[in-house]
């Protein structure tokens, strides 16, 4: 397997960590949905995200990252997940308005990767992601009718956090280091524009206003390029222990 340019390794690490925590959140909330169908969808998405992480971990291992470290043997601050997944407080509405922006952002980053040797892998992930994202949008539309204040308030926090995972606006075609290496086929600025446009269109004509969302986040000078976020937040120590699965090691089948 050929060597990736250095900034690309962190780029994929952030996608992988976001999916790792996303899978965990899906599983945590998979008995809390308003209907059995929502729970079935959540449980199935959890399994798919974990499947994606397993493959991304193989790729990252081939680029020199330690497999135990990838699988959770590290401090909470060493995870590069989207900040909107750090902790989810509130009801199922807050949950959906937190995971949806993260899942879509991670997919847009993956979809931008332009490598022949990752083509099949990403196509396969896209087959799963189509249904995750379509379900989220369908759910956000109904929640925008039922509970617009909560959706709006949550998105005002989570959309800028998901945008921080994507990266700063300043990373246009002349400044994005990953794009410059040819690892991706479009610069961050372009990915952001598609992402922002999607949510604007989704909530257009609903009672959810995105007027107060800070679409300029993250500022380049505040942005941590490795963790793809601003600020020093992280998942909790308990989350890390659960991700490692140590308590249930007894039940491992291998």
């Amino acid at each position: 397997m050929s060597e990736w340019p250095e900034p690309a390794v962190d780029y994929v690490q952030a996608i992988s960590d976001t999916k790792l925590v996303l899978g965990h959140r899906y599983a945590e909330w998979s008995l809390s949905g308003p209907s059995l169908e929502d729970d079935i969808g959540g449980a199935s998405a959890a399994q798919e995200e974990i499947g994606h992480v397993r493959q991304l971990a193989r790729e990252l291992e081939s680029q020199g990252r330690d497999l135990d470290w990838l699988n959770g043997q590290r401090e909470p601050e060493a995870f590069s997940n989207a900040a909107c997944l750090d902790s989810i407080e509130g009801t199922w509405t807050e949950y959906v308005a937190s995971i949806a922006p993260a899942d879509r952002a991670a997919w847009y980053l993956l979809d931008a990767i332009d490598r022949d040797d990752l083509d099949g892998l990403i196509t396969k992930m896209g087959e799963d992601e189509y249904f995750h994202l379509e379900y989220h949008d369908a759910r956000l539309e109904t929640l925008a009718e039922d509970n617009p204040e909560t959706v709006q308030r949550t998105l005002e926090t989570t959309l800028p956090q998901a945008l921080a995972l994507i990266g700063p606006e300043a990373y246009d075609e002349d400044a994005d280091p990953v794009f410059e290496t040819g690892f991706t086929d479009r610069p961050i600025a372009k990915i952001r524009a598609a992402y922002i446009e999607h949510y604007r269109r989704l909530f257009d004509g609903t009672d959810v206003s995105l007027e107060n969302v800070d679409w300029d986040q993250p500022a380049l000078e505040d942005w941590d390029e490795t963790r793809r976020r601003t600020g020093s937040g992280s998942i909790s120590q308990t989350d890390v222990e659960q991700l490692r699965g140590e308590k249930n090691k007894l039940f491992t089948m291998n």
Partner: peptide, 13 residues
């Protein structure tokens, strides 16, 4: 067929 196959390791074993 599924990336999240629960028998991922078992089949390889």
């Amino acid at each position: 067929p599924c990336m999240g196959c629960p028998a991922y390791d078992m089949i390889q074993n």
